[in-house]
Design a protein around this nucleic acid. Structure first.
Length: 292
DNA sequence: GACTAGGATACGC
DNA sequence: GCGTATCCTAGTC
């Protein structure tokens, strides 16, 4: 919102995932800007929308050009990060970025994901049997009526997804083929999020070992919950068992998934020769029998 | 308490 | 039948 005392970045809350690396990027891009208090719900957790108030930072009129460039940089970073997050979510949930195309199952996955990411109360039942098209046709008021607790937030997030999908389509219709990402939309200049080994595009149900490998191939996103100890030997460690289990549950639409069940599935791989415990057995450490 | 191991059974594809 | 998901008991760290 330009022309206002402060710059409100409606997409900011999409960025604060479990790590806050984007904050570093933002502060790098503009030393004059800080991330101050949220405007929408100041008392809430950090996953809310902050306000960047340039006036309070004491910027003089002579700095307008610099401010302009800084704001553009920030906006560019914001858009990039939002798109990256959405693409990651799409990969993880195996849904398209455009909410219009979602079926009822996709809608429930998205709800679970958003609730999980922003620690919202469960509202899946309030939106049961709704397709993405239904959801997109709903007003903020209707969202609020269905879920007084988090309907507004969900509507805001859906709005971001809709905008992102429109933006992606627009860029794809004007951009060249090389810039198309794995989901069929573009993000020029960025590496593809997932390798060729990504199974989520094949249309086949993903196997747990594939899912784990995909997480391991994205250390930037998931390094805090699962990481290689020795990639050459295929040895990896689950750093946050509950988080990995939640991700797997989201991916398979199994809200009741936990590490107990996930680890049982991993152990089924012992007999099949897909995963085993390393020679020196350690807690939460496993080894792919055939390393990537 | 969290993790490991593995048997048994259920379920969807 | 396959690949889990779920539940369970028992043992280890």
């Amino acid at each position: 919102e330009r022309g206002m005392p402060g710059l409100y970045l409606s997409c900011f809350d999409m960025l604060l995932t479990e790590d806050a690396t984007w904050l570093v990027k933002v502060s790098d891009a503009s030393q004059t800007l800080t991330v101050p208090t949220p405007r929408m719900a100041p008392q809430e957790e950090p996953e809310q929308c902050p306000v960047i108030d340039s006036q309070e930072q004491g910027l003089s009129p002579g700095m307008e050009g610099q401010e302009e460039r800084s704001l553009e940089q920030v906006q560019s970073l914001v858009v990039g990060e939002v798109l990256k997050d959405i693409e990651t979510a799409c990969k993880l949930l195996n849904i398209t970025p455009d909410p219009i195309e979602w079926n009822t199952g996709n809608v429930q996955k998205w709800l679970l994901w958003t609730e999980h990411l922003y620690r919202l109360p469960h509202a899946g039942k309030a939106f049961q049997d709704l397709t993405g098209k239904d959801l997109c046709a709903m007003s903020e008021e209707e969202f609020h009526q269905r879920s007084p607790q988090c309907g507004d937030t969900l509507h805001a997030h859906l709005d971001i997804w809709k905008s992102a999908a429109a933006w992606m389509k627009e860029r794809c219709s004007t951009g060249d083929e090389k810039t198309h990402g794995t989901l069929g939309f573009c993000r020029p200049g960025e590496e593809e999020l997932w390798s060729e080994a990504d199974s989520s595009c094949s249309g086949q149900p993903i196997h747990l070992w594939q899912f784990l490998r995909e997480l391991l191939l994205k250390p930037h996103n998931y390094g805090r919950c699962i990481r290689w100890l020795n990639k050459d030997k295929g040895i990896f460690k689950i750093e946050d068992s509950a988080h990995v289990a939640r991700l797997w549950g989201l991916r398979k639409n199994r809200p009741a998934m936990n590490y107990d069940k996930l680890s049982r599935s991993i152990r089924q791989y012992y007999k099949k020769g897909i995963i085993r415990k390393p020679d020196v057995s350690q807690r939460l450490v496993y080894q792919f029998v055939h390393p990537v």
